[in-house]
Design a protein around this nucleic acid. Structure first.
Length: 593
RNA sequence: GCCGACGUAGCUCAAUCGGCAGAGCGGCUGAUUUGUAAUCAGCAGGUUGGGGGUUCAAGUCCCUUCGUCGGCUCCA
């Protein structure tokens, strides 16, 4: 459903077909937004037209002087359907600006747009009956070709996207060729709800949120087990790849943040405090701490690449309206690392980071990736640090590193940070959504600001290059993505509870406890459910709690000293010796934790 | 932060025009001793997010505050 704004560098045949389908759909959606405007003007003549637009997920139109309730959506949708039934045709015509002004004499925002244009220019307008809109795009031939339409939401949106402007009322919707396609869309929306990590987190008792700390996670025991398992695997991978792990303070003198440049850019979203008249800030990222570590002693080219990783607890005062479950929080663990290198090591280190990312995220069940290289915007304004040559070389190195690994990528123009270009790795989840977790950023800024040095082979002082990178990004957010991808059915090695031991009746409780203790002793995460409820009910509880293995014990198992094991998502159970079962679980876990 | 909606028992939800706050699940107690997704019965559970107001009377109307959801802006 989600299509990225980026243009793919290379297109596969499939991509081409998708693009054609998307183009047709865009025409449909674009045609629909005019109808939305007509419907609103008919029902609410006082409303003033803003702009309409097609997005990746439908279309919207913004209006000023329009107050509508959620229940009005049905009213507007009915009106749109009426207009569609009228079968009015779209017409595009070219007008002189002067002439066009006349059409919009009661539409101040349309006038604003026209008045900004050169008076001698011509403009394309589209008409639907006696309704006119500024528009040069193509439409479907006739309204009747819109087979199904659905208005989805009312929201606010700043005029021209500028928060200094007033807020308009935005009505969003979606349209399809036919009812079946709309049905599929509704089914997909329902599916999304079932994968919502906030609901799953509550059901599986993984975490909670409380008004006393908005945007900060309270990890419950099962959620913390999951988080710790991820961390344990992360540490293993980093040790193997030559990283050293450090931990730096979360409260640091504001002078450090002034020196790093964060104070100028992000002061308003940093938490600060005064202690003995000195101002401190809680770290919003870990790099300055890492730099103080680098500066601790003089470094030689022999020490490079110096790979320093930190699971940094960072705080960012995200605006209240942007908080969203685990996906957007104010306190989180960032799996940061800083790699200090000599310039000639750049390409090799970039490739290593990409490999590490793809391998690690793949282990969590994400096999579908795409890559973006974020470069400067085409208007090379003064906001970027470093000179043109540095940038061009860096961008070229990022691209060639991906090419060396045979990865295709797209270019995200203008998405580079002010201090350097970056590679972003997007994972595609099972619902076709893209999430950016890993990012690798080149930094021209910090090594200079902190006067980082190393001694080269000739004994001369040189400035190292610095790579920032995260693989999972925020652990909180990554867990959110993982829960949505798996619908809470985590793989065995990540399940907070791996097996539920269920004796058929209290007669077999003793055997059940023996088995349970054997599993616990070998660090298999197990529970025993020997309450006096029916067997079916206890199995149901196990399945709802998404415990992957169900161990049922009765007369047959006791007399043969075996266990019956059923995978929660399979119908058949099999008989195992307890040691075979433990060995199997340990084998799955072995290379990860 | 801005625009809008929402907030009722642990959870999911009901309560007509302002007129006695309710159900299912979960919990507790008792009976049931179960072979792979809900055994039966009884009981308890509430300052309707917090504060203020209007009214004979407020879950319901108004103000305010906190939080959540959707959208905007932002996301080092």
């Amino acid at each position: 459903m989600i299509f990225t704004k980026h243009t793919m560098k290379k297109k596969s045949k499939e991509m081409e077909i998708m693009t054609i389908m998307q183009e047709q759909r865009n025409i449909l959606w674009h045609s629909s937004l005019h109808i939305l405007a007509v419907a609103v003007k008919r029902l609410f003549p006082g409303a003033k037209l803003g702009n309409g637009q097609v997005t990746d997920e439908g279309f919207f139109y913004d209006f000023d002087d329009l107050t509508v309730k959620a229940s009005d959506l049905t009213l507007i949708q009915d009106e749109m359907e009426k207009i569609i039934d009228e079968g009015i045709k779209y017409e595009n015509k070219i007008f002189q600006i002067q002439q066009a002004l006349n059409f919009f004499r009661n539409e101040p925002y349309k006038l604003q747009i026209l008045q900004r244009m050169d008076k001698n220019e011509k403009i394309s307008l589209c008409s639907i009956g006696d309704f006119y809109d500024i528009c040069s795009q193509s439409h479907i031939n006739n309204c009747e070709n819109i087979g199904a339409i659905k208005l989805l939401s009312i929201g606010g949106a700043y005029w021209m996207g500028n928060p200094k402007n007033q807020m308009f009322t935005r009505i969003s919707g979606i349209a399809f060729e036919n009812q079946e396609a709309l049905g599929e869309f509704i089914a997909y929306s329902e599916l999304l709800k079932k994968h919502d990590h906030r609901v799953i987190g509550k059901q599986l008792e993984l975490f909670s949120f409380h008004p006393q700390a908005p945007g900060s996670v309270f990890w419950h025991e099962n959620g913390l087990i999951l988080r710790n398992l991820i961390i344990s695997y992360w540490r293993k991978v980093h040790r193997k790849n030559g990283f050293r792990e450090i931990s730096t303070p979360i409260l640091l003198d504001s002078s450090l943040w002034k020196q790093s440049g964060h104070w100028d850019h992000y002061k308003q979203s940093m938490y600060t405090t005064k202690i003995e008249d000195k101002e401190y800030a809680i770290k919003p990222m870990s790099c300055p701490g890492s730099i103080l570590y680098y500066l601790e002693k003089s470094r030689s080219y022999r020490d490079l690449p110096l790979k320093v990783a930190e699971l940094g607890l960072v705080h960012r005062n995200e605006l209240s309206g942007t908080l969203h479950g685990l996906m957007r929080v104010r306190q989180f663990i960032q799996d940061d690392a800083h790699i200090f290198i000599c310039p000639h090591q750049l390409s090799e280190q970039i490739q290593q980071v990409i490999k590490m990312s793809v391998d690690m995220i793949g282990e969590f069940g994400f096999r579908d990736f795409s890559f973006a290289v974020s470069v400067r915007s085409s208007e090379k304004t003064g906001k970027y640090l470093g000179n043109d040559e540095q940038w061009e070389r860096a961008e070229a190195t990022l691209k060639s590193s991906l090419e060396a690994l045979n990865y295709t990528y797209c270019i995200s123009e203008g998405d580079a940070k002010f201090y350097g270009p970056s590679i972003d790795i997007m994972i595609n989840d099972c619902l076709g959504r893209k999430w950016q977790c890993s990012t690798l950023q080149l930094d021209f800024n910090l090594p200079q600001r902190f006067e980082l040095e190393y001694t080269d082979v000739q004994g001369k002082k040189q400035t190292p290059l610095m790579l920032h990178r995260t693989l999972l990004g925020s652990l909180e957010r990554f867990i959110g993505i993982l829960l949505e991808h798996t619908k809470g059915q985590l793989p065995l090695w990540l399940s907070p509870i791996q097996a539920a031991v269920i004796p058929i009746s209290s007669k077999y409780s003793e055997y059940g406890n023996t088995i349970f203790r054997m599993l616990e002793e070998k660090s298999v995460r197990a529970v025993i459910i020997d309450s006096e409820e029916s067997l079916s009910k206890r199995i149901r509880q196990t399945v709802l709690f998404k415990i992957p293995y169900i161990v049922v014990l009765g007369e047959r198992e006791v007399s043969n000293s075996v266990i019956s094991v059923r995978k929660a998502d399979e119908d058949e159970s099999s008989v195992y010796n307890i040691q075979e079962f433990i060995d199997y679980i340990k084998k799955v876990e072995r290379y990860r934790i």
